[in-house]
């Protein structure tokens, strides 16, 4: 479904991603975990087409991706950003934000689709004509998820979708993502610094450090401690320690 081969990303003269390769099967949720500066978000944004200056092989749905993405790509691949405060246009109502993808793709019947999208992410009808600053962090992230899903994509890229949220809200959003993934058979890539969050949603995950993938492990390996790379072990130990 998603294929990444020998991906290199440069910011000017600075190479931030080195030779990253992985595959994601249809319906799978793949995790990218690492500390800040490990390049995990850059990999995701490169797949999304938001980063210029990369080389290597990228393919989604069997279609090889070039530097420019067409509209069909954006219909099938969508993204949820980390900061729910920054990812919603501050001067647009929820209604307008949700209407935009529909207008771009020429999808008819905006009225019912918007109502249904709000229901799907369990937002009250009253939220429809509010501005982002009138919503809580969790509600904003729900709006962002609704926007990502409104044009029926098959791939969802999640960039730290819960790290700006309170833990109780994080639980709600993680449950929501799990439900939607199930209901819509989504293929997902989840980026997070929180190993527990990744372990909760992902079957397989890549551990990144300094722009490289150091190890790809399965959920089971994560749990029974058979990960080999020292950095992976370090992250696992930290995560256990913080759980207390």
């Amino acid at each position: 479904m998603i294929e990444v081969q020998h991906l290199n990303v440069h910011f000017g003269h600075n190479q931030v991603v080195h030779e990253v390769s992985f595959q994601v099967a249809p319906g799978e949720t793949f995790g990218l975990v690492g500390e800040s500066g490990s390049g995990k978000s850059t990999v995701l944004r490169t797949i999304a087409g938001l980063v210029p200056g990369w080389d290597g092989g990228l393919a989604v749905n069997g279609k090889t991706l070039g530097p420019k993405r067409d509209r069909a790509f954006f219909k099938s691949v969508q993204m949820v950003f980390q900061d729910p405060y920054g990812s919603l246009h501050p001067r647009q109502t929820v209604d307008r934000i949700l209407a935009e993808p529909l207008a771009v793709h020429g999808i008819p019947d905006a009225e019912t689709r918007i109502t249904r999208a709000l229901e799907e992410v369990a937002l009250p009808r009253a939220a429809r004509f509010r501005y982002p600053h009138q919503l809580s962090g969790g509600q904003r992230q729900r709006v962002a998820i609704a926007r990502a899903l409104i044009a029926n994509p098959s791939v969802l890229l999640l960039d730290e979708p819960t790290s700006a949220l309170d833990v109780s809200v994080q639980a709600e959003v993680l449950n929501l993502l799990a439900d939607l993934r199930e209901a819509r058979q989504l293929t997902c890539i989840l980026v997070s610094h929180n190993l527990a969050v990744i372990g909760h949603l992902c079957g397989r995950l890549a551990v990144m450090q300094g722009g490289r993938i150091v190890e790809i492990v399965s959920q089971a390996q994560l749990r029974d401690g058979t990960a080999r790379h020292p950095h992976t072990r370090e992250l696992i130990a930290l995560s256990h320690e913080l759980e207390g």
Binding site: V167, S168, Q170, A171, L174, N175, A178, N194, L195, A196, V197, G199, H200, Q219, L222, R223, I236, S239, H240, E243
Partner: peptide
């Protein structure tokens, strides 16, 4: 409500 590495839960 925190996800845990050691005690997996579906929800």
């Amino acid at each position: 409500c925190m996800p845990s590495l050691s005690v997996p839960r579906p929800r």
